[in-house]
């Protein structure tokens, strides 16, 4: 490296990653608060609902979504099941 390169050398750019960290923390912590504040029976309820549904319809675990949301004083248990399109294969005989 010549002496001219030394003077031409630019300072190493710093990556401002703190904003990314903060954003990610916001999201993950909000999610964890929802889980922590939810009722204790929610995971078991979720599991049993899935078992019942699987008795009648062929669905993958990922196709069933259980969500508990809170709007003020009101709690809403949302159950979302994506049923397979082909009815023949969907039914459990």
């Amino acid at each position: 490296m010549s002496i001219f390169d030394y003077f031409r050398r630019k300072p190493k750019p710093v990556k401002a990653t703190a904003a990314i960290a903060k954003e990610r923390l916001h999201i993950v912590m909000a999610h964890e608060h929802r889980v922590a504040n939810g009722p204790d029976y929610l995971p078991a309820l979720k599991r049993e609902l899935m078992d019942v549904i699987a008795k009648y319809v062929h669905v993958q675990k990922e196709d069933i979504k259980v969500n508990l949301e809170r709007h003020g004083d009101c709690e809403i248990l949302e159950l979302n099941i994506a049923l397979p399109e082909d009815k023949e294969t969907a039914a459990v005989s």
């Binding site: 710093v14 990556k15 401002a16 990653t17 703190a18 960290a21 903060k22 916001h26 912590m29």
Partner: peptide, 16 residues
């Protein structure tokens, strides 16, 4: 490092 945005700042941590 907090000033250059490499590290979570005090305000960030307190807010979180």
């Amino acid at each position: 490092r907090a000033e250059t945005g490499e590290m979570l700042s005090l305000d960030d941590i307190q807010e979180l």
